Simulated assay, not measured.
Amino acid sequence: MNEQSLAGQAAFAPSNTADVANALIADAGLRVDAERRRGRGAGLNPSGRFEPQQREAFDDGWQSWEELPPFKTEVQVEKPRTAITRNESPDIPFDRSINPYRGCEHGCIYCFARPTHAYMGLSAGLDFESKLFAKPDAAKLLERELARPGYKPRVIAIGTNTDPYQPIEKEWRIMRQILEVLNRANHPVAIVTKSALVMRDIDILRDMAAKNLVRVALSVTTLDRKLARAMEPRAATPPRRLEAIQALNEAGIRTSIMVAPIIPALNDHEIERILDAGKAAGAQEASYVILRLPLEVSPLFRDWLLQHYPDRYRHVMALIRSMRGGKDYDAEFGKRMKGAGPYAWQISRRFEMATRRLELIRRNIALRDDIFVPPDGSGVQLSLL
């Protein structure tokens, strides 16, 4: 029996669901020892969904659990052919993005990008936040792509999959190199992060903002430091994210605050407080996303709930399913970001009323794409024609 079916029993189990499911998972040896995963978000590390074998750890008496090494951050170099990723999703306002890294050390338990690690033969659990991939050639590849004949500039989104300012960016500095290329080319960019490290690049962002080429969104999920520590163990604290909003705003950089994700019965009561704090820090716009639990994220999140908030498990999952047609997740376009049903409508109305009161309504001010200057093309492969 795998971790998904075990945790899934909580949906219809009796009132002691949390205790029963916790015991089942622990007895089956599915949960990784707390000391080995200290400072991490996920409690499980199941095999990737594309793997031919599923493996479970168990103590055979020959080796003590205490002797197993803790999960440490490992970074491998990835050599992609292109820097820009294209998409055709009607749910998002951009058609291209850049991901400097695969995996994310922030370890946010709710991260919808976790299942992408399965394509690397790794787990969406602890592997996602400890076995990372960096793309050091991303800036060079980007410069070549922008120099290609016929390239038409449109806003490039960064941070929509994994955070470009996660802790390893301090050493690798890939995001900064990308911004340098975009700045030289006068190319528009939209950034999403939950890291205060974005303040390091204010010098570049200020220059781009003066030309209306950049906007930055800071994701603030909660103002409760205890909840943030459990849910987003290696991300910046909520006060530091608000500090980043203030610093960016003072530098003349258009900044917004994202309440993402909104989790029913866990952080939804904070919506108005978060928006108030964002407005006070200088945010000019606001947006939100309802919790998404695709593929492996669902069992990982449910196990996390059982560990940290067992008394709320049934209530949280019942409300999530009420917005997803009775399922943990509904991937249908138009519904996956905001949900559906009475509870989703209530969240929408509360958010709308708060943003109107605070004048944080999204204005959809377009970034400039008419001053784009293609790079000189050095290093671009010449045509054979």
Rank of each mutant, 00 (worst) to 15 (best):
R240F: 12
R240T: 15
A244V: 10
I245D: 04
I245Q: 07
L248R: 02
N249T: 11
A251Q: 02
A251R: 06
A251C: 09
G252L: 10
I253Y: 00
I253F: 05
S256W: 06
I257F: 07
M258I: 00
M258D: 01
V259M: 11
I262M: 05
I263G: 02
P264D: 08
N267K: 01
H269L: 08
I271N: 00
E272A: 03
L275F: 08
A283L: 14
A283R: 04
A286S: 12
S287T: 13
Y288W: 15
Y288S: 10
Y288C: 06
L291A: 02
L291E: 03
E296V: 03
S298V: 06
S298Y: 11
S298W: 13
P299R: 01
P299Y: 08
L300C: 11
R302Y: 00
D303I: 02
L305S: 02
L305N: 00
L305R: 02
L306G: 02
Q307Y: 09
H308Y: 07
R312H: 09
R314P: 00
H315V: 10
V316I: 15
I320W: 02
R321I: 11
M323I: 12
M323Y: 07
R324V: 05
G325P: 09
G325W: 11
G325E: 09
Y329W: 13
Y329M: 08
A331Q: 14
E332T: 15
F333L: 08
F333D: 13
K335R: 09
K335M: 01
R336M: 10
K338S: 05
P342R: 13
P342Q: 11
Y343Q: 05
W345N: 12
I347K: 00
S348K: 15
R349N: 14
R350I: 14
E352I: 05
A354E: 14
A354R: 14
